[in-house]
Amino acid sequence: MFGRIFLTALAAGLLSGIFIWGAHSIKTTPLILAAEVYENQGEAVGDGLHQVSPAAPAAEEKEWGPADGFERNAYTLLSDVLASIGFAFLLTGVIALSGRHVDWRQGIVWGLCGFAAFFVSPSLGLPPELPGMQAAELSARQAWWLSTAAAAIAGLALIALQDRTVLRWAGAGLIVLPHLVGAPHPEIAPGALPAELAAQFAATTLVVTGLFWMVLGGLTGYFYNRFERS
């Protein structure tokens, strides 16, 4: 069983990590680079919203960051693949715990649940950020994001993986709860970043991440089913 989970998560995570890196390189990284131009302009006049700024020599001397171009893309590939393998282990772990049969079709549905828990629900409170966007204090946002994702996972499990009606309602309540509490937000003041860039980034990440979870779920279902026989 351990080998089956390990091989499934590794294969599905690696392939979908390469897929999302390709999609990021074509669709989202250009938007991030465009946003950094405005972000660095803001820093030049003393508006320190951002810690990393590959174009700002002062910041580069202080801390390491990959050089723009090949090196930066290589590190994005590494982080995309590692995040994807991480998501794949979570997905395979939950599928194994559920004890249910999956093939690639059901895998896509499992993947869409991952999309709901790790993108849709957190993004409703904390939309995908471009560099230079105004945001509340980092650890508060991270805590809200992680709690919201965890509540969505628990809620979806209560709705889909057990049969008691009361617990199903409790699951729905759990998904909604972080949104009633509300995500941490700063007072928004006029900023340098064009709204068009931010809107494009939000829509692009929604589509790219949705496709990623369908690919990851489909591959997880396929390999999990395939490795059962081997």
């Binding site: 990021h24 989202t28 810690q51 990393v52 960051g65 993108f119 560099p131 990440t205």
Partner: peptide, 21 residues
């Protein structure tokens, strides 16, 4: 949080909608 990890994973963090900065 360490800045080396943050900088290496920077574009991926933004694109996967993790809170960043």
């Amino acid at each position: 949080q360490p800045s080396t990890l943050h900088n290496a994973a920077h574009d991926g963090r933004h694109a996967l909608a993790f809170p960043c900065h």
